[in-house]
Design a protein around this nucleic acid. Structure first.
Lengths: 145, 145
DNA sequence: TTAGAACCTAAAGCTGACTTCAGGTCAAGC
DNA sequence: GCTTGACCTGAAGTCAGCTTTAGGTTCTAA
């Protein structure tokens, strides 16, 4: 069993955030001892999952829903599977988009390196839209589709 | 030259958002004709860059800074290069993190597929922390570091 | 020339995820 | 017994990035 302060340390999260999560229903079965929250291994595990679901883009109220499914037992396995499958698809799409963004950033890095060398953007702009060096052209094309 | 309504169509952005961007200084040199905004190719190009910078995680006021550098000419090449280099490094880190999140999602998908097959989580939990099937173990390890 | 669509502004409102505040309770060490 | 630090609550505040509202101006086409 841990106090809220210990969990705060473990996860580098402010105490206020943990209380907020609790108020939002993210620890549906957490116990109390004369008013004081008792974080068990169960809540600590839950918090690891919460961090992951947040990172994957889920909102607090959707995470609450998931946590409630978890405490309802095997009858909700299919709902939980669906949730992760949907998240996975959404994140795949987001990663594709971010890779395009990354190519734009790489292109822009190259662009300004050249501009600095030349003291001007003109010689680069003259190469657009399809006479850039091969590697750079790939980046440019991928982020200008 | 385009009206705000045409640009709104082109980028599938609400007119109110374009006005908000303008108010925030994202189009520092945009002209007006009796009060009405005139979007030129320059502003349309700027908007493409804005979308990319937003996708890379930049805040509006940082984008404003960048747009101002752009209208100050070659003396700001180095600052602009730095901006993109920093963004690139930040996005690389974010992508690493998201790939871990993705592995967690893949693991959880597998987990609940098994749970559904078995009708119970017990047989899977018995394999933790290092007796999972090889491919799954990799996912599990990568997101539990 | 006049209706109505598309434009304009300033200011207020909204959302999500927290954080801060004010005021109170509990447990441990002196 | 008393102080002190860690805990508690509900309510209000914050922030970014828009969106909505209210009221007014300009352009376009019949």
């Amino acid at each position: 069993m841990y106090t809220i302060g210990q969990v705060s340390e473990m996860f580098s999260l402010p105490v206020s955030t943990l209380r907020y999560y609790d108020k939002e229903g993210l620890f549906p079965d957490m116990e109390r001892k004369s008013g004081i929250r008792q974080f068990s291994e169960k809540e600590v595990d839950a918090l690891r999952v919460i961090e992951c679901l947040k990172a994957s883009g889920l909102e607090i109220r959707e995470i609450k829903q998931f946590m409630q499914w978890c405490s309802e037992g095997p009858s909700t396995f299919e709902k939980r599977r669906q949730l992760f499958a949907n998240r996975k698809a959404a994140l795949e799409e987001e990663l594709t988009q971010l890779n395009k963004t990354m190519d734009m950033l790489k292109y822009k890095c190259w662009y300004y390196e050249q501009a600095l060398k030349n003291g001007s953007e003109e010689p680069i702009l003259a190469l657009l839209p399809d006479h850039l060096p091969e590697e750079i052209q790939k980046l440019y094309d991928n982020c200008h589709e």
